[in-house]
Amino acid sequence: MFDRFTQGAREAVVRAGFLALDAHRATLDADLLLLGVAEVRPFTLPSFTASGADLRPRLDLGDARSLLATLGIDLDEVRRRTRAGTDAPELWSLRRSRLRPLRVTLDGPLGRIPLAMHARKVIEVAMWKPGPVTGERLLWGLLADGANGAGRLLAEAGVDVAALVREAGIPVRRAA
């Protein structure tokens, strides 16, 4: 599935996978896809003002860092030394199960993590139109489903979501 992704969009999804594995989550959720997009920024949209630092406090990422710091262990340094090169997007793949077509997994050197329903919908929307899957298309997928909370998280981080939708060229359905 990654064959249609631009380098930046692929890096954002792989970053989200890293975050999910680090947080010991059972699935990759839409909130971590949003954080991956915010950290990688696979587009140049001035109205996307949220950074990873703005979104992190709003997400449950576990608390291993502070726990290990009390023991004098720098978790970031441990990860740098033990994971060197494992974040290269070309080492990761996004796959749909042939036997269970609703199951999509992100596979890489650090493990395999299935995409939760809302994250899978982000990818489906981003891939819906022909052509490359860009950062803007991932953003479209994140904002297309109001139930995944991405719009709320962006608004809480101070983003003008309506302006972002206009700037990114995300189609808006008008109610009849």
Rank of each mutant, 00 (worst) to 15 (best):
L55Q: 06
R56A: 15
R56W: 13
R56Y: 04
P57H: 08
R58N: 03
R58F: 03
L59M: 14
L59D: 14
L59P: 11
G62Q: 05
G62V: 11
D63R: 14
A64E: 14
S66L: 08
S66W: 02
L68I: 02
L68K: 01
L68N: 01
A69Q: 06
T70V: 07
L71A: 15
G72A: 09
G72T: 04
L75A: 12
L75F: 01
L75S: 05
D76T: 05
E77P: 00
V78R: 03
R79F: 09
R79E: 14
R80H: 07
R80Q: 12
T82Q: 11
R83I: 04
A84V: 06
G85N: 03
T86F: 13
A88E: 15
P89A: 15
P89D: 11
P89M: 15
L91T: 08
W92Y: 12
L94Y: 01
R95I: 07
R98A: 13
R98Q: 09
L99S: 10
L99F: 10
R100G: 00
V104H: 11
V104W: 12
T105R: 14
T105C: 07
L106E: 12
P109K: 08
L110N: 13
G111A: 09
P114S: 11
P114D: 12
L115F: 10
A116I: 02
A116N: 00
M117R: 14
H118M: 11
H118R: 12
R120E: 12
K121V: 06
K121F: 10
V122E: 01
I123C: 01
E124V: 13
V125K: 08
A126V: 00
M127V: 02
W128P: 00
K129A: 15
P130F: 03
G131H: 06
G131T: 04
V133Q: 00
V133N: 02
T134P: 06
T134V: 08
T134Q: 08
G135Y: 11
E136F: 02
E136I: 09
R137L: 03
L138C: 02
L138F: 00
L139Y: 06
W140S: 01
W140V: 00
W140N: 02
G141C: 05
L143H: 04
L143E: 10
A144I: 10
D145P: 05
D145M: 14
D145H: 15
G146V: 12
G146H: 14
A147G: 12
A147V: 14
G149E: 11
A150P: 03
G151V: 06
R152P: 00
R152T: 15
L153E: 00
E156V: 06
E156I: 03
G158W: 05
G158I: 06
G158P: 05
G158M: 06
D160S: 13
V161M: 05
A162H: 12
L164I: 05
L164M: 10
V165F: 04
R166A: 15
R166S: 14
A168W: 11
A168G: 09
